[in-house]
Design a protein around this nucleic acid. Structure first.
Length: 355
DNA sequence: AACCCCCACAACCGCCAAGCA
DNA sequence: CTGCTTGGCGGTTGTGGGGGT
């Protein structure tokens, strides 16, 4: 048995609101307020609309001081910065832009801003994978293939969500970086040797490992980035900090978010605070758990030798976890995990994911 | 002029969590 | 504790207008 409908769907009007309906709703709410019950409101004012529809109409269109269209360059920067940082949590992003609604920002992002950013590259090679389709195709294909993709993700942990990939694309686009490393090593690209990040991968150089164990397992063809003073990491962090400063959000901590995880614990929340601001928060801890889970899932069918290696890796990760207090070391964590993973395909995946 | 396609935006849908009886 | 109602959220669809052929 399904969920009880919020209203009598047979007797409610759908589709665009007429000026008369708008006037009725606006006049009533301005005089009486919502009464704390949207479901009962349409009956009170004689509107043949669903309560949820009334609420949405009020919040997104009729409410005072709502701005429509005409997004400024500054607003673009805020939206972009926050999207890269926290993903599609539109209500949180909207909270940073007075007069803008989450719906408005969502629409603006999906129809214009994303194209403006990602569409700069003509002949976009990142479209080689279905998850990297342009926005309009992305939503349609995502809907069509959702079940298949979910199933695929269960059995192929190296598959990134479209959202995570998109955010990585954007980050790299913002940083304007290139790479010869993964890009030049198709053997480690997951998904039928299609690069997980399209053509944008950060260039990193070989580096001292954080411990002898990490160094011991270091594949000479691989790249380990475990030192927080590594120039590339410092550069990324500064770029992130600068972009946050530019949009007037220097108090927003950029820690953790560059990993690109989308912690489920924040889904549906009502908080407008930055979920990544505290490394020891449940969200940040969840981030680490996500990484552990990814690594473990990748190892689920490992041999005994690989299991032992995995055990070693996990203890290394625990050490790193203790040390992780900022972005640089979070990046290092993902790099270490990728470098240690026994499956070359998986190494490439986490390596990319970490950025 | 008619048709088609694309785009932008409004609106809807289903899920989730909080609150309450 | 359980189940129901409600509000909030993000994803998706529907619709109308503009431009191209």
């Amino acid at each position: 048995m399904g969920r009880a409908p919020c209203c009598d769907k047979a007797n409610v009007k759908k589709g665009p609101w007429s000026p008369e309906e708008d006037a009725k709703l606006k006049a009533y709410i301005e005089e009486h307020g919502t009464g704390g019950n949207w479901i009962a409101l349409p009956q009170k004012i004689g509107l043949k609309r669903c309560g949820k529809s009334c609420r949405l109409r009020w919040l997104n269109y009729l409410r005072p001081n709502i701005k429509h269209g005409g997004f400024s360059e500054e607003e673009d920067q805020i939206i972009l910065g926050l999207y890269v940082s926290i993903g599609s949590r539109w209500s949180i992003i909207a909270a940073q832009l007075p007069g803008r609604t989450d719906n408005d920002i969502k629409n603006y992002w999906n129809t214009r801003l994303k194209k403006k950013i990602l569409g700069k590259r003509s002949g976009d090679h990142s479209l080689r994978r279905p998850q990297c389709l342009p926005p309009n195709q992305l939503s349609k294909e995502a809907a069509d293939n959702n079940k298949a993709m979910m199933s695929h993700e269960n059995t192929h942990p190296q598959t990134l969500s479209a959202s995570a990939l998109e955010r990585m694309h954007l980050q790299l686009q913002l940083q304007g970086l290139h790479t010869p490393f993964l890009y030049n090593n198709p053997s480690i690209w997951p998904m039928h040797h299609h690069h997980p990040l399209g053509d944008n991968v950060l260039e990193v150089s070989q580096h001292n490992a954080i411990s002898p164990n990490l160094a011991r397992q270091h594949n000479p063809n691989d790249t380990i980035m475990t030192n927080s003073s590594h120039p590339s990491l410092v550069r990324i962090k500064h770029a992130m900090q600068n972009s946050m400063r530019e949009i007037g959000q220097e108090d927003l901590d950029v820690d953790c978010s560059p990993l690109g995880f989308s912690p489920s614990s924040t889904r549906g929340g009502h908080s407008t605070e930055n979920p990544y601001s505290d490394y020891n928060s449940p969200v940040a801890t969840g981030l680490q758990s996500d990484l552990h889970e990814i690594v473990l899932r990748g190892n689920s069918a490992s041999s005994l030798r690989l299991q032992e290696e995995n055990q070693l890796m996990m203890s290394e990760l625990d050490c790193l976890k203790e040390m992780c207090g900022n972005f640089e070391e979070n990046a290092a964590l993902s790099y270490s995990a990728s470098s240690l993973h026994p499956d070359p395909m998986f190494q490439g995946y986490v390596l990319g994911y970490g950025l």
